[in-house]
């Protein structure tokens, strides 16, 4: 199964096996990983599932125009490795991924 490792802003880590097709955002919500809000339910409309991708085994999709615009409006400032967790799906885009969570989502 694909694996997602979340690194909290404080430094602690948790690794979770994700269902294929489930996003980094959704996996966090279903497993109680704090630090991801995902208010719009994964429509790339709210920018509250911001993550910094540290490493990835797989090929992430290009950043769409919508995602690009949303990333300009995140609560913690955008960096080079910023993505929206709702756009990154286990299996489809990666076998394993490590993401750092921002301090704030809203």
């Amino acid at each position: 199964m694909p694996t997602i490792t979340y690194i909290h802003s404080g430094g602690s880590e948790e690794s979770i096996e994700a269902e294929a097709g489930t996003s980094v955002m959704r996996t966090a919500i279903l497993n109680g990983v704090d630090g991801i809000v995902g208010e719009c339910g994964g429509q790339a409309m709210c920018a509250t599932c911001h993550v910094f991708v540290r490493s990835v085994d797989g090929e992430l999709p290009e950043i769409s125009d919508d995602e690009d615009e949303m990333l300009d409006c995140t609560a913690d400032e955008r960096q080079g490795e910023s993505r929206l967790g709702c756009q990154l799906r286990a299996g489809d885009h990666f076998e394993s991924i490590t993401v750092v969570l921002p301090e704030r989502q809203v």
Binding site: A47, D68, E69, C73
Partner: peptide, 10 residues
């Protein structure tokens, strides 16, 4: 037009 929307929110 997500960009214009986000700009407006700011």
């Amino acid at each position: 037009a997500a960009g214009a929307h986000m700009k407006a929110r700011r």
